[in-house]
Design a protein around this nucleic acid. Structure first.
Lengths: 112, 112
DNA sequence: ACCTACACTATGTATTACTAGGTGTCAAGA
DNA sequence: TCTTGACACCTAGTAATACATAGTGTAGGT
């Protein structure tokens, strides 16, 4: 999938994953890939800065942990983050609905 | 609607409107607003550059017309544009499906 | 005379996903 | 032992693009 497509919707994805429980970055990438059936296979350079941005915005908190000699930064939804998740999900709903209204009636390409 | 959301999906919208038949920029904006039930109310500074970009990419052709003293640039889908419409529509489908897979299971906010 | 809708254009800005590089740990295999 | 690969993080720079802003001009109504 052309990743550009998720421009503006990455935050929602990350918040959604973290709604399940706290996770570290690498695990988030993994789960995103699994849950989306490989469709979302995001590079680290995409996810880490986004997590930093979300934390800076107060939507996530994080803490360092050490597991078998490997340091991990575990992220957790804040109250504000949970609110943002709800809002963005509603916005996503509105958006897809508006898209399908515009797309409705447009003929599909010939697929014989 | 926060317009940022359509980042990367504007082209699909424009191609979809033009699949209905040739139109000029202002009319495209109008129809986009109507078909989306006011959700997509795009500023000219968004749409015109996008049309130019699409034409430059070979997806649209255009010609000047004059209607009651007002000059209009009427845009039309090219063959290539029709192909792109099909592709982008499939991509949009894949994208929404992947999104809903990730979103599935995430609890909605309390709405009493 | 003024305002609004119509209709287009150009320039600059902010956001953001991604590229490309870098650091370091650990386990398995050659 | 040395190398590879998975794990795990980071940052600086780039490209794309929606939008803000400002400008040009016509037509029609008040």
């Amino acid at each position: 999938m052309r990743g550009q497509a998720l421009k503006g919707h990455l935050d929602l994805l990350l918040l959604a994953i973290l709604a399940d429980g706290a996770r570290h970055g690498y695990a988030i990438i993994d789960e995103l890939r699994q849950r989306s059936d490989e469709a979302f296979d995001l590079p680290e350079g995409t996810v880490y800065p986004a997590l930093h941005r979300l934390q800076k915005g107060g939507y996530l908190s994080s803490e360092w942990t050490e597991v078998q000699g490997r340091r991990r930064r575990t992220y957790r939804l804040t109250e504000s983050g949970r609110g943002a998740l709800g809002e963005q999900r509603l916005a996503w709903n509105d958006f897809t609905q508006a898209m399908s209204m515009v797309l409705k009636g447009v003929p599909w390409p010939d697929t014989p």
